[in-house]
Write a protein that binds this DNA or RNA. Sequence first.
DNA 1: CAGAAACGAGAGCACCGCTCTTGTTTCTGT
DNA 2: ACAGAAACAAGAGCGGTGCTCTCGTTTCTG
Lengths: 233, 233
Amino acid sequence: MTSQSAPRTARDFARIELTRAILEAARRHLAEVGPGELSVRSIARDLGMASSAVYRYFPSRDHLITALLVQCYDESAALVEAADAAVRPDRLRQRWIAMTLALRAWALDNQHEYALLYGSPVPGYAAPQDTVGPATRVPQALLQLMADAEEAGTVLGAPTAPLSRKERAALAPISASVGRPISDERVLRSLTGWALLIGGLSLELFGHLNRGVLDYDLNFRCLVEQAADDFGL
Amino acid sequence: MTSQSAPRTARDFARIELTRAILEAARRHLAEVGPGELSVRSIARDLGMASSAVYRYFPSRDHLITALLVQCYDESAALVEAADAAVRPDRLRQRWIAMTLALRAWALDNQHEYALLYGSPVPGYAAPQDTVGPATRVPQALLQLMADAEEAGTVLGAPTAPLSRKERAALAPISASVGRPISDERVLRSLTGWALLIGGLSLELFGHLNRGVLDYDLNFRCLVEQAADDFGL
DNA sequence: CAGAAACGAGAGCACCGCTCTTGTTTCTGT
DNA sequence: ACAGAAACAAGAGCGGTGCTCTCGTTTCTG
């Protein structure tokens, strides 16, 4: 780890402070240039230090990106969770709408960050273990919504052919992560919802709707409303 | 344009041949390194020419990427269309399954190419007009399927609240592109289907299902089967 | 057959991630 | 208190990138 517990000495304090400053500058750059062109050198210039000094705090550009990844996952997930919590728990449909709109709002405000999280992986980059926790917060929130829907006894929209044993087995780790009983059909529904959400946002933000859809806000709203219908919310 | 009609002279011939060779080498590299690290220099090395010579044929790296973009859009769309055509036209559900499986198969075989098409845009890159035609072939195929479903008189799965006038207006360019009558609800369904398809593939290929889903093949199949149910196919 | 156009190759510019060395500052054990 | 160890900032440097410019050669065209 980079910082051990408390800043005992002045040096410790300076270290965590500079680490924060570097990350902050990186994030500031990310607002303008996109993940692929994030440059350690320009960040260092921005902070008035030699580029080699940055490597005292982040051993490589990838480590810096990992830190940004975690920060952005957490930031967006916090917004989604907050939007969820702001709605009465039994208003299931409204919660779904609120969560999806929250993620879209964040994505629109932080397009390069969205690309970092859900776009193509950065060049030679393989996400380390640190990111998986934060990365699962949003899909977990969707899962919890579905579990609530199951407890409330809502019926799924369209009739679905029952899943085979093998199909159920493939979803086992997810079902187990919910922490309470949930049918495999609902687990699958949350996956669908997640895929639809990310797909819709990616198509919009990566420019695939350019010629075609005129009103992006309205289009996204239609998408999630229709999904709510399908999910029986 | 790069080549005007016929290769009249030996030089013309050499030019289109070399252009093709460069593109081919670029594509070969793309199978291994990912769009962001495609390097003009390494492609030139691969062909045994000076990097500056490549710029006689593609004025910039972005132009080269554009050519790859078009090629990949066309290649994947051709597979999707072929899969569609291989099924009896009135087997709507089977056509949907075939098309989605075809795109997934291509994406799995060409992961970097998929990232190029549907991942985050390449750094400073803005897709020019040339790419929009090929890019719309897949969503167009989905739209045509939905139009066929409408003609066949299938009913949509879950009940949907009717779209508002503004919502219908936002979809107008797409409806018009179908070339025959289609309800706005079905247009919206194709958008949902497209978003779900791209979202599902992106989540899978960009590593978001790593811990969770055990069997990717099965999971994707479940996704599209369930979507077929929702779409009333 | 001369002039023009296209060509390939090389040097060079400014940038990148990253490493190594050097000299300085700060902490720590005795 | 002080010496040794550890952390630090800065600079030079390596090999890579996209791209430009120049220069000598080849090919086409009027």
